[in-house]
Design a protein around this nucleic acid. Sequence first.
DNA 1: CGGGGATTTCTTGTCGACAATTAAAGGTTT
DNA 2: AAACCTTTAATTGTCGACAAGAAATCCCCG
Lengths: 254, 254
Amino acid sequence: MTSTATPGRGRPKVRPQALAGQAPAGREKPAEKEQRIYTAIVDRVMEQRLKPGTRLPEAALCELFGVGRTLVQKVLQRLAHDHIVELRPNRSAIVAMPSREEVGKLFEARRALEAAVLPLVAEHATRANYASLRRQLRQERDAMHRYAQTEWAGLASAFHLRLGELSRNPMLHRYLSEIISRCCLVVALFQPPGNATCEHHEHERVVACLEAGDVAGAQQENDRHLRELEAHIQLIEEDTDQSLADMLGLTDRS
Amino acid sequence: MTSTATPGRGRPKVRPQALAGQAPAGREKPAEKEQRIYTAIVDRVMEQRLKPGTRLPEAALCELFGVGRTLVQKVLQRLAHDHIVELRPNRSAIVAMPSREEVGKLFEARRALEAAVLPLVAEHATRANYASLRRQLRQERDAMHRYAQTEWAGLASAFHLRLGELSRNPMLHRYLSEIISRCCLVVALFQPPGNATCEHHEHERVVACLEAGDVAGAQQENDRHLRELEAHIQLIEEDTDQSLADMLGLTDRS
DNA sequence: CGGGGATTTCTTGTCGACAATTAAAGGTTT
DNA sequence: AAACCTTTAATTGTCGACAAGAAATCCCCG
């Protein structure tokens, strides 16, 4: 008999690992199921409860969410397409860990895309749109003053998302959404809690330029704003010796 | 017994429809399988052998390509993400048929994106890159003179794709590729064979501006070029009474 | 003769099962 | 003791099976 004390020959048998399932008992529409799993994973990544490099085996996700592998695979496909996870053939999916170069390209793309979007916003935006933008800015400021970091971070990116929406171009909106959520991911990765940049004045400046019809000015302000955000990221990244740990291969396994 | 002459009660039983399978007998790597199906469908759509609105039932595709439904579904997901097909819940997937408004937004996005890409191209491009661009332009001109329409169409979009590549930004490159292939789809849909615009001079002008360091000029030339292309599409669309046939529901079935 | 169900079939949504691949440890040989 | 091979488990790739939803036709009734 194979006792528990004697270590078997091959790969060690993993313990059943009773994972706490949180599947809502009530039946839900098929589309909602998929969305629920998707957002659950994205949220955990944003909260840093799922760190980059963490393995995401399909079976575990199946138990966690109480669904079959088909659905989990579909979600993983979507996550991989959005670069939230990395999908390797015949290997577990892992939470994506963007390299320094990728982060640079990411912000470059974001600057280019937002600059391309601003003229369309200026073209289509109405008074009501500007009013709602300003309302959003007030919320943002309040959250900052209340030191509600997670909420504030969400609102800050919501501003840029709203700009994408106001371009009235579904494709550009989608692309910008994709890039912004990846940026959020990066920020969440490298930003130690409690270390936030005070940026909401810059948002206000962009809106002011837009409302005054100064598109070029808005582009310039936004570009500078994004560069500042990126510089802050880089700085923090230098601070922690992330690269060293990475080189030693300590970030690979749990 | 249920004879073939008497029409049964419910929905008419469809004939097995012996479809000619073209599955390569030799085993292939899993990733290649998926790509083979994907490109096969895209190619058929581009050739207009699969017209918009054509239904794509999973079972038929399974027989055609000799694979299971899992793979077919994965491919359909990708195609839907690229807006090549439309995916409705509990209904057959159909080849996408972009509306007039979507086409407008599509070209708007393309103009914005290419304008955003050009500065990066000017920043990164080397002498050798410009040389290869010019080589491509010569091929393009030759193909046009030889009246090789399909080849020429491919080369014409290849020029824009190359610009995306030269931006050295993977994300922008991918987005531009997506949009360009959608534009190709639209062009293929509305462009009757043999009716091509003579555009390669405009490409040359863009390259000339870029090489001279005149980014704004290149953007302007490219913008005008794309607007001309779109205007040509619209014109043709007005010509054929596509909307009428659509309203009569004649475009639904083969 | 037209409209509302009933009925049948088609089609997708979802799941577990089996095969193939990869990783990780132990044992073995030099 | 270090490098290689063997064994074992974990994990994904792929498929058919079953259930549920939608569509098309016919039947019946007004």
